[in-house]
Design a protein around this nucleic acid. Structure first.
Ligand SMILES: [Mn+2]
Ligand SMILES: [Mn+2]
Ligand SMILES: [Mn+2]
Ligand SMILES: [Mn+2]
Lengths: 218, 218
DNA sequence: CCAATTAATTAGACAAGCCTAATTAAATAA
DNA sequence: TTATTTAATTAGGCTTGTCTAATTAATTGG
C-alpha cells in the first residue's frame, strides 16, 4: 500500500488515540492531535476509508483496518527507533528529538528500519520510555504506572514521558528530571492534589496533579 | 529562507548542472535532471526567481543567487553525509543509497547535518567518491581524472562514480568494480574506442568509451 | 420536550506541483 | 532568407491537503 506523509500522520494519530483514549475516535479528537481543522479531518477520513485503511461511522468513529494498523505500527516503530538514534548517536537532547523523528519516520526504503534497528542493537524503549514494537509489531512489556498513583513515602524511577508536548519536556529538563531519575513522594496536598517530591535524594520540588498524571514511573 | 522539498531538488539540480555542464542552464536541461516536464520547470523557475533563489533569462539561463547557492550546497552536503551513514553504519550497498539519501537530504533541523558530520568523523568523500563540502561550503580537493584519459599500460584506482545512474552502479557491481578497485589499461581499440581492462590484477574485461568516460580514477 | 450548544459535514476556495496541448520564439539548414 | 525543427512559454486542468463559512445533526440543560 502506497501512503503519503499526510495519510501516515493521520493513521498514526488514530492509532495513538485508540491506545490512549477509551472513547470513539471522532473528527474533533483527530483534528486536535494532527493540529488541523476538523473539516480537513473529514476529508482525510473519506480518503482513508476509500483506501480501506480505516472504517468510519458516526457511531463507531474511526477504526484502523488490519492494513491501516500495520502501517501505523510501522510508523511508530520507525519514529521511536530514529529517536533512539538521535539521542544515542547524534547526542541530541530529550526534548529536541520528537520534531525530527516526525520527519524521519516517513523515509521509505525496504529494510531501512530493520537495518536501523540492528545498528542500534534492537532497543526496546525509546528515549521517552515508550516501547518500540519489533519487526512483527509486538511490543515489549513494561509495568509502568503514573506517578500520581503512588502514596507518600514511595520511591520510584521515571520510565516514560509524553513525547509530544515540548513544554512538558522542557519543564522536566529544567527540573532535572529525565528517564531513570529517582523520585521520592514526600507529601500529597489534599487541597489541590499537588505533590512534594524529592529528586535524586537532593532537591525538593512541588508539582501539580496534572504533572503527576503525565509521568510514568516504575 | 523556507524551502520546500521540490524547490530544494530544483536548486540542487541547477547547482549540479552548473558544475558539470559548461552551458547555459535552460528548462530542457533541468527537466531532464529533475525528471519532470519542461513546462513544470518553467513554473518552478518563476517561483525560484520570485523567492530570489535564482536569476533567469533566456540568454543567461538559470543562475543561483548567493542564497540559492548556499541552500543547494547544504543539500549536497546533507545528501553525501547521509550516504556515508547508510554505507558505513547501516551496511547498505553502494548502489542502493542514492534514492534513500534523496529523501534524507531534506530533513531539516538546526545542527542535524553538523551532528551527523561529527558522528561520521568528518568524512571528506561520499561512498561514490564525491567530495563533501564542509560546514562553510568548502570542498576538499581531489585530483581525479577520467579513466578514458589514461594511456595503455597505466594503472589507476577508482575514486569516484556517478551516483545517480542505478544502471551504471549495478553494472559496476556486477563487474566487481567499486571505490578503491585497481585497474590496469591493457588495450585501446581505435575502431570503437573500447578499452580492455584488468581488474585487481585478475579478470580482464572490455568496456565502452561511454563507460570509460563515466569513471573517475586517480 | 424543546431550545441552545456543540460537533460533524458540506460547499467553495486556494497553494503547490505537476501534466498535456497549444502557441510563440529561436536556431538551423536548405 | 525562408522553411523547418526545436525549445520555451502559456493556457488550462488535475490531485493533494489544507482552509473558512455555511449547514445539518446530535446532545444536553432547563
Ligand atoms: Mn510525521
Ligand atoms: Mn518518543
Ligand atoms: Mn531529494
Ligand atoms: Mn553520492
Amino acid at each position: 500500500m502506497n501512503t503519503t506523509r499526510a495519510e501516515e500522520n493521520y493513521l498514526k494519530a488514530i492509532y495513538r488515540l485508540t491506545k490512549t483514549k477509551k472513547q470513539v475516535i471522532l473528527p474533533n479528537l483527530i483534528a486536535e492531535k494532527v493540529q488541523v481543522n476538523p473539516a480537513s479531518v473529514v476529508d482525510m477520513i473519506k480518503k482513508l476509508v476509500r483506501k480501506e485503511l480505516i472504517s468510519y461511522s458516526r457511531k463507531e468513529g474511526a477504526k484502523l483496518t488490519d492494513t491501516g494498523q500495520r502501517i501505523a505500527l510501522n510508523i511508530v516503530r520507525s519514529h521511536r527507533l530514529w529517536e533512539v538514534f538521535l539521542v544515542e548517536k547524534l547526542e541530541y537532547s530529550w526534548s529536541e528529538i520528537h520534531v525530527i523523528a516526525e520527519q524521519l519516520e516517513h523515509i521509505k526504503h525496504p529494510d531501512l528500519v530493520d537495518k536501523l534497528d540492528s545498528f542500534l542493537d534492537f532497543p526496546s524503549f525509546d528515549p521517552h520510555g515508550d516501547p518500540i514494537p519489533d519487526k512483527m509489531g509486538a511490543y515489549p512489556i513494561s509495568k509502568k504506572i503514573f506517578l500520581s498513583t503512588l502514596s507518600i513515602g514511595a520511591e520510584c524511577k521515571v520510565i516514560s514521558v509524553s513525547d509530544d508536548n515540548t513544554d512538558f519536556l522542557n519543564y522536566l529538563e529544567k527540573l532535572g528530571i529525565s528517564i531513570g531519575t529517582k523520585i521520592k513522594i514526600l507529601e500529597k496536598n489534599a487541597f489541590d492534589d499537588s505533590l512534594s517530591l524529592q529528586i535524586e535524594k537532593k532537591n525538593i520540588i512541588t508539582v501539580s496533579r496534572k504533572f503527576a498524571d503525565s509521568l510514568y514511573v516504575i
